[in-house]
Amino acid sequence: MLDAFSRTVISADAKNAAIGSGELATLRNYVAEGNKRLDAVNAITSNASCIVSDAVTGMICENTGLIQAGGNCYPNRRMAACLRDGEIVLRYISYALLAGDPSVLDDRCLNGLKETYIALGVPLQSAARAVSIMKASSTAHINETNTTGTNPDETRFRKMETIQGDCSALVAEAASYFDRVASALA
């Protein structure tokens, strides 16, 4: 498993060179944006169960066949497995975001995931759809652009209330990890 720093070390070692000013600029940026990154991880972890259950519910709303007899989220036992997997994927994405490097996500979560799902008969399209909903809500939580959506009276709606600032780079990075999961399942 690597983080942003050890990733630089691995590529420098391949070139047999010391790490100089050029590579250090990227790392200095990681350090300078460190608090934003921790807030972003916190935005995901603090809202994890909400993000996961919303995504799985949304996936089922779009394809109600999943919870009818014979569907892949029927009975409760399989629905529970689906929620559990959603949480696991989100957890590894939160690790990757904390580390600033996708290696932990690749090695410990995505490697062999598609084959496992095929063997278990899990519909890959539905899984990818749930991940893309998690992407939308996670990035909205990080960026604090989340809204009440179609229901203006939604009471469970919540903002993280961190200091306002430009989080576009972190949002893009987080989105890339979700996209990584989607492409691993494609």
Binding site: F5, S6, Y95, L98, A99
Partner: peptide, 18 residues
Amino acid sequence: MKSVVTTVVTAADAAGRF
């Protein structure tokens, strides 16, 4: 590669928590 971040992530992963 051992660093503070990887150590933290390894421990969290072993416990299965965010």
